[in-house]
């Protein structure tokens, strides 16, 4: 599979949690490619794509954060009206069950990518292959 690795951090919903996490990363010279927060009332999950996922995981775990690492796909969104909708329809037609997604810009060329986490990553890979949609590798995102 041509996926990239995303870090998820458990966050309590209190002041300073996000900046605590970000300062740990910057102290270790880790760059962020993308950032997304999903939350309910008391807690949330911070999702991030770092330039060095392994190092980021180590640094955050040592700092006492709860971290999970999951594979996700980064898919380039066609740069035209309705591009994202088309992509999602193709995936849905193949029975891909999307957990969540968020956008990120490519490292060099500024292409817009969607980070997509699916319930079944194999199904999604097959669908991407069938529809000839390339998933970006780490390089495109500068990882």
């Amino acid at each position: 599979m041509k996926n990239i690795y995303q870090l998820s951090a458990f966050m309590e919903n209190r002041k300073g949690q996000l900046s605590d996490i970000l300062s740990v990363l910057s102290e270790h010279g880790i760059d962020l490619r993308a950032l997304n927060v999903a939350e309910v009332s008391d807690y949330g999950v911070l999702r991030l794509i770092a330039d060095d996922p392994e190092k980021a995981q180590r640094a955050l775990t040592e700092a006492g954060f709860v971290i999970a690492v999951n594979p996700v796909f980064a898919v380039a969104v066609p740069d035209r009206p309705g591009g994202l909708s088309e992509l999602l329809q193709l995936l849905a037609a193949d029975g891909v069950d999307i957990d969540y997604m968020y956008s990120v810009f490519g490292h060099k060329d500024g292409t817009a990518y969607m980070i997509i986490a699916a319930k079944n990553m194999q199904t999604m890979q097959a669908s991407l292959d069938r529809n000839n949609i390339p998933a970006a590798d780490s390089l495109a995102l500068g990882i």
């Binding site: 998820s8 939350e39 309910v40 807690y43 999950v45 709860v66 957990d99």
Partner: peptide, 15 residues
């Protein structure tokens, strides 16, 4: 305290 090993990264799991 949430046990570190049970965190999968999914918000739904925590809920």
């Amino acid at each position: 305290e949430i046990p570190g090993e049970s965190f999968t990264g999914s918000l739904a799991t925590v809920t």
